[in-house]
Design a binder for these strands. Structure first.
Length: 523
RNA sequence: GGUGACGUGACCGAGUGGCUAGGUAGAGGUCUGCAAAACCUCCUACGGCGGUUCGAAUCCGCCCGUCACCUCCA
């Protein structure tokens, strides 16, 4: 079995072949940090987290790059003065970089909560202005860029002569010219409406600006990824990804920039695009205002949802669908996911008992029949079924990262585990080897690859209060018994038992006039 | 207008032409002091109309419907 991935560039599933095995370079277009991340923003990171986890499981040496775009993109072509970052900064009366830092911090928190391992490199666009300028110079030198009034544009028609602009999104420039909508303002500098900015001259009020050969300005909207991918993953990375809505123009422009610069490649061998998250069938987006912010979602009711859902439930929910399918958010769907997630976690907790139970039953078997051969049979009748279920775990993942199928396989294996746990006869029917293998595979897939962890639902202090409640009841019982001259011994026994049990946990009970209190033991 | 998806049982959601997806909900049962969990059984669908085929949810055509991108967007 080997991993195959759907490549947007070739429009088919391809067996994954690293450019330089065993190294694998993965790039995911990260957030523009001018606002809170919403659920839709989480899908790509979760999918790519599973992808990189799985690649590592397959023994590849992965370098995972996920950028932070902290150079604000302009609100529109027409708006030459203010960009998103500056707008947010002005609203909050702080530095644009403070805005970027704030939302980058929030983003990392949310991603961590969702179980996404931090990327190996998290480059910031603002820290790679030099690299971006260098790339622009190459593009100009190669005849695919031109300067006008301190701005530099990418010459799409000219580029299209030598290469094909639109190879990723399957568009032709004729179609795009024909279908151009209302002429946008601020386009007069461009030779063609299809051209896009590589460098923009900063207007006097523009705060985020850097010096360049063309004067003070800031880099274009697609350049940072091309420049940073090249810097950290070389001229040709293995996998480049993002949301479907980034395919055009963002990724298309990235490819053009790489081909037009000295990079001279498609930037990445495989291009992957995750589908959108929808609300009532419509794409969740900032502009439509139908978004669910991650911070709100984890906390409680928000937008179309009547209640909150924990990060792990959200992660499981996202992984229950294939990444190229749209996913619709609703309370019904999330609640169903929550139950499924908990079922999977209960299974995780069952695993240890299962192995212990197995060895015990094996020992008992041998004790009962000391005369029989002491050697454990290497295979038993139940092994075939168990091994089949185990092997099936990865068929989904191997097929274009189909987490939905692998999760279905997990539930099938879990049913088997539950049967084994409750049916000694069935347990005796499988060999320790097959069982150990199955248990390890389940745990590896759930924890290491899908990145699902048990979320503690019970609060330790609340559980302690509960215990202290029973303690108080025993105390009262003892008191009443004493007053009515009855035997209080059973109550004292219970009291002592609770005190001893808690003491083992490092907790001492203190009977005060105000009531029962506790403290950490100082011993 | 161009490009590209998608329409699966009560809900969510996989699906490589023939073999049970899975989760949730519902019904019945086993187990159980009660309950929960677990297990077993059931409900078992593929937008419509044609076509290809021994056989199609799966391939082809048309129609209906939904969505996405073409403008910042994961």
């Amino acid at each position: 079995m080997s991993l195959s991935l759907y490549n947007t560039l070739t429009r088919k599933k391809e067996e994954f072949q690293p450019v330089h095995a065993p190294q694998v370079g993965v790039y995911l277009c990260g957030p523009t940090v001018y606002s809170e991340a919403h659920l839709g923003n989480a899908r790509g990171p979760v999918v790519f987290d599973v992808l990189t986890r799985y690649l590592r499981h397959l023994k590849y040496q992965v370098r995972y790059v996920r950028n932070i775009t902290d150079v604000g993109h302009l609100e529109s072509d027409a708006d030459t003065g203010e960009d998103k970052m500056e707008k947010a900064a002005r609203a909050a009366r702080i530095e644009p970089m403070q805005v970027a830092q704030h939302f980058a911090n929030r983003y990392r928190q949310h991603m961590m909560a969702l179980g996404c391992l931090p990327p190996d490199i998290e480059p910031q666009a603002s820290g790679h202005i030099t690299e971006q300028i260098g790339m622009i110079e190459e593009i100009i030198a190669n005849g695919f860029g031109y300067e006008v009034n301190g701005s530099v544009y990418f010459d799409v028609p000219n580029y299209n002569e030598a290469h094909r602009y639109g190879k990723l999104s399957n568009r032709s420039i004729e179609d795009q010219l024909g279908g151009t909508r209302d002429t946008l303002a601020g386009q007069d500098e461009k030779r063609s409406p299809l051209d896009f900015a590589l460098w923009k001259k900063a207007s006097p009020e523009h705060i985020m600006r850097w010096p360049s050969p063309w004067g003070e300005g800031f880099p274009g909207w697609h350049l940072e990824c091309s420049a940073m991918s090249r810097k950290y993953l070389g001229n040709l990375s293995d996998i480049h990804g993002g949301g479907l809505d980034l395919m055009f123009p963002h990724h298309e422009c990235e490819i053009a920039q790489c081909q037009a610069s000295d990079t001279g490649t498609d930037e990445s061998r495989v291009w992957m695009h995750n589908n959108m998250i929808t609300v009532n069938g419509t794409k969740m987006s900032k502009s439509l205002g139908n978004f669910v912010l991650l911070g709100d979602l984890f906390q409680g009711p928000t937008g179309p949802l009547a209640q909150g859902y924990s990060p792990m439930v959200v992660r499981f929910f996202l992984l229950q669908a294939h990444y190229r399918s749209p996913v619709d958010v609703s309370d019904d769907a999330l609640q169903a996911a929550r139950k499924g997630y908990r079922k999977l976690m209960n299974g995780l907790r069952l695993l240890d008992k299962l192995v212990v139970g197995s060895s015990l039953s094996v020992a008992g078997e041998n004790d009962a029949e000391p005369a029989t051969d002491n050697q454990q049979p290497t295979t038993k009748p139940g092994d075939a079924d168990l091994r089949k279920l185990t092997a099936d775990l990865y068929t989904g993942l191997d097929d274009d990262l189909n987490t939905a199928r692998s999760i279905a396989s997990l539930f099938n294996l879990l049913r088997k585990f539950n049967t084994l746990a409750t049916t000694p006869a069935a347990l005796a029917d499988v060999s320790a080897a097959a069982l150990t293998e199955a248990v390890a595979a389940y745990r590896t897939l759930v924890v290491d690859i899908l990145g699902l962890q048990d979320e503690p639902r019970a609060n330790a202090e609340q559980l302690l209060e509960l215990t202290l409640g029973f303690y108080s009841e025993a105390k009262n019982g003892a008191k009443e018994a004493k007053e009515s001259a009855e035997d209080a011994t059973p109550y004292y026994a219970k009291i002592d038992q609770i005190r001893a049990a808690l003491k083992e946990q490092g907790i001492v009970i203190k009977d005060t006039k105000a009531g029962v209190e506790w403290a950490y033991s100082e011993e």
